[in-house]
Design a protein around this nucleic acid. Sequence first.
RNA 1: GCCCAUGUAGCUCAGUCGGUAGAGCGCGUCCUUGGUAAGGACGAGGUCGGCGGUUCAAAUCCGCUCGUGGGCUCCA
Length: 618
Amino acid sequence: MKEMTPLEEIRHSAAHVLATAVLRLYPDVKLDIGPPTSSGFYYDFDSEIPFTPEVVEAIEAEMKKVIKENQRFEKIEVSRDEAIEMIKEMGQETYKLGRLDDIPEGEAISFYRNGEFSDLCAGTHVNYTKKIKAFKLLNVAGSYHRGDSANKQLQRIYGTAFASKDELKEHLHRIEEAKKRDHRTLGREMGLFHIDDMVGQGLVLWKPNGAIIRQELEGFISSELSKQGYSQVYTPHVGKLELYRTSGHFPYYQDSQYPPIIHRDCLTELAEEGCSCSELSNKLEEGEIDGYLLKPMNCPMHIRIFRSEQHSYRDLPIRLAEFGTVYRWEQSGELNGMTRVRGFTQDDAHLFIREDQLQDEIQGCLGLVKTVFSLLGMNDYRVRVSLRAPESDKYVGEAEAWDKAEDALREAVKTLGVEFEEELGEAAFYGPKIDFVVKDVIGREWQLGTVQVDYNLPERFDLTYVGADNQDHRPVMIHRAPFGSMERFCGVLIEHFAGNFPTWLAPEQVRLLPMNDDLIDHAESLLIQLKEKKVRASIDRHSGKLGAKIRKAETDKIPHMIILGKREVEEGKVSIRSRNMPDLDGTCPFEDFLLAVSKEIESKSLPAKRPSVEKSPS
RNA sequence: GCCCAUGUAGCUCAGUCGGUAGAGCGCGUCCUUGGUAAGGACGAGGUCGGCGGUUCAAAUCCGCUCGUGGGCUCCA
């Protein structure tokens, strides 16, 4: 058992105190498990009464009493039989006996006792409850016993604890601050996107400002694609079920698809025959009737493009790219702002390659992901090499091919020059992958960019190219998306910049602030010049005081302000107040400013004064 | 999908014991014409998410439903 850090000991002890308090108030509650986490602790309870906020408040008060009693934490080593006896005495057989069984034969079994409470536990703990100087219960959540949704759902109480009250206060403050950077909050405030009840859950409406950001990002990707020998294609949003039967997505992933679209005449006919729902479902699965599916992924369509003509080994790699919109029926409880949605656009591409090209092509894809991340200053990401689980049968294809693909990915990821970890069982069913994972403001991880090797779909769709030997050969496919999806990426990006985008991405790049109405005409003439240079700018025509206009522009997170007074007009200059380029602050000829901003946009440079990016509370 | 919480003006929220709805911001009009983060006055905006029930009377109590938040499960 790994030694706990002092902070983990505090949190783990707090979890025991939590259980102590719960049992004092509700003796019938059954305990499951209560570990420390990266940001606090939790304990899972099986309780007849729901843990409402009032109940949690009472529990928290009881915990304070327990701490005040300054109970000593005492380790008790026991034999397995004694352990069973103790668990039975406490009436905690329901889950604790199972937990006891998890401890391998021969390993030490211990309980920790504090006051009247003891818990099967390997430790370690603080020595006295008073060492828990600052804690707070945060929220209640459902959780399945052993993480299996087939098991009973328990109530989990989350809390956090720190070595001092100040640290706790600081932590809670950080959570509050992080909420202000939440992409859902900023997305509304900045007019970036809207999710509308009447349109549907998880379906994002990109508002004008958000659309600008997306267009800039797509434009950047497009230019990179043409540099790297990709061909862009367009494909429709629906395709025949037969297409997805061939790819294997229908019917096996039916639960995560919008239901099929079936022709009206066909439905009428079936209704007249008295066809039941399950019969209909069977007919669809068997292929006796056909219909259309909102496309859950782009690959099958790109594959059919590849297959529409003959390819020589000389033509490979063929790289087909598309900002392809896909629809997936995500569980309602999983939906989250822009980061988990039901309709989203992948910056997708599929590479059809010879096996000998695998290494180079993977590296090319990784290079693109890296380019994107460094351009945006996103350095805080995790790279995961997702491999197959050794003894699982969910994977298709030959072990030999898998080994080759996994080796190729391992080798390629080393050239990235970043830390990475291999995770078994995270691979897609058709092949291993490399994923780029980032955290949002509240510490949740989201997978963005991905590079996947696939030996399966070329087989299913019988793809071939003609080799130098004049024989047919099977190409290998790479699936890759540097952003992952435009929705999720933008959501994460909003939080990354806290809305203070680099100028090239900012929906409004420059705002002109005339001191009074007489200066609006002058502002108009500058606006025309800005627009000629394709700078996104506007004039604040309100009649408020300058201070108010500046405040508005600041809260609107405009990168550059031009303040226009009589003085500037007479001198033929402008007064600049700049967030992204503090060097520009002060007075200068308008032409100089125009040049500097054009250059800044052209170079896609990051803000010079980085927004104070606070670490997520993890 | 499951557990808990939650839904009042465009936004953030108040609304006591059930008695026909309030603030700030924003928006509009007018006044103000200014010097680097909030000038002033007036005004418009709400079937209190929806449906049903209890009641003389429901934003308020109950049921259902839809949405949202935090988790859990899931994520080809």
